[in-house]
Amino acid sequence: MIGRVLPALVAGLLLIFLLSPDSFAPLFRPFTRNGAPPIYGQTSLLALTLSHLAIVAVAVIASTLVALVLAVLVTRPSGREFLPLARTVTSVGQTFPPVAVLALAVPVMGFGTAPTLVALFLYGLLPVFENTLAGLTGQPPEVAEAARAMGMTDRQRLWQVELPLALPLILAGMRLTAVISMGTATIGSTVAAKTLGEVIIAGLLSSNTAFVLQGGMVVGIIAVQIHHLFQRFESRAARAAGQGV
């Protein structure tokens, strides 16, 4: 019960805050000093939130598509040769710090949204790829065997058996990617991407804790909501894939 009502309540509060931030000014005033503004006003919080979400959404969708294709390719007979390499590259790639990836994208892409998108995209590939791979390779061997023995073509097996069975894990990969991207996108503001990081950085530069708090809270709350939403999808997909309890 609480698990359903609480997220809805928090989401509602967040929406009210984004639509009318000034009505929350009294709440944030204790965190300001010397009469500094309690609510970030340079850019509308709603616009920053939407831009933040758009960057994350584009990056997550792009990395999901590419990672899916790559994972399918390396698990086909013709791509098997790449599978061990792909695993190594994925595990090594995940040790690359997202901030460093972002910083390295700047010399190539310049400042702005582009390097952030590219960094989020590259970093987001790994969880989806890893999970899709686990989903495609971890299926019960007798199921694959049955599909083959019943005369499914390779394509039919992929679409009718392998991908539906891997869906819960694919979604879990997307959840990881989305939640990591929500946080990493804030750092994008250090290279001038339009994200909620702008609010936090403004707070850091002017020692205005209220800004830091409101930026961090909006990002954190949305991340938690995304997390919950994906978990709902995952358990639904798991039930549909016959893995439910």
């Binding site: 019960p140 061997p141 007798e142 199921v143 694959a144 065997e145 049955a146 599909a147 023995a149 058996v161 539906p164 069975l165 549909a240 894939a241 016959g242 893995q243």
Partner: peptide
């Protein structure tokens, strides 16, 4: 086959 291999989904 022994494991039956019904499609779980």
């Amino acid at each position: 086959i022994q494991g039956v291999g019904l499609f779980p989904h």
